[in-house]
């Protein structure tokens, strides 16, 4: 069963991190990724550039509407994701709890839809 772990974090707080703290976090992520690769839970995952780089696209009546910025202003922003394989939701939740940003941000766990 596949789950997508969406990682949300406050960009404002992230901007306050100094170089050293950033390096430490990157190392933590590296270690976490290695761990779930070793256990076979890792399918994929990436970090995203901040929401100031986002563009939102809609098509209405055949016309493409382009807006600068993310689709919604929120306190915490989507900053990355992992796509994981887990036997049960319990396992998926345990893995999500180990994602480094779960400590100050949050992780939304969503099952991936299957088409038969």
């Amino acid at each position: 069963m596949q789950y997508l772990c969406l990682i949300f974090e406050s960009e404002a707080l992230a901007a306050q991190r100094d170089e050293q703290a950033n390096m430490a976090l990157i190392q933590e992520y590296g270690k976490f990724t290695e761990e779930i690769e070793a256990t076979g839970n890792h399918i994929g995952g990436e970090a995203l550039m901040p929401t100031e780089t986002a563009t939102t696209v809609r098509v209405r009546n055949g016309e493409t509407l382009i807006t600068d910025g993310p689709f919604a202003e929120t306190k915490e922003q989507l900053g990355g994701y992992y796509l994981i394989e887990a036997a049960t939701l319990d396992d998926a939740i345990s893995i999500a709890a180990k994602i480094p940003s779960a400590k100050d941000g949050c992780v939304e766990v969503r099952p991936v839809m299957k088409f038969e």
């Binding site: 049960t88 939701l89 319990d90 345990s94 839809m113």
Partner: peptide, 18 residues
């Protein structure tokens, strides 16, 4: 159904959170 939450007892490692 979507999350495949099982109809069974949790495993020992998940018991405390459940």
């Amino acid at each position: 159904k979507a999350n495949n939450i099982e109809f069974s007892l949790p495993t020992q490692s998940h018991l405390n959170t459940r």
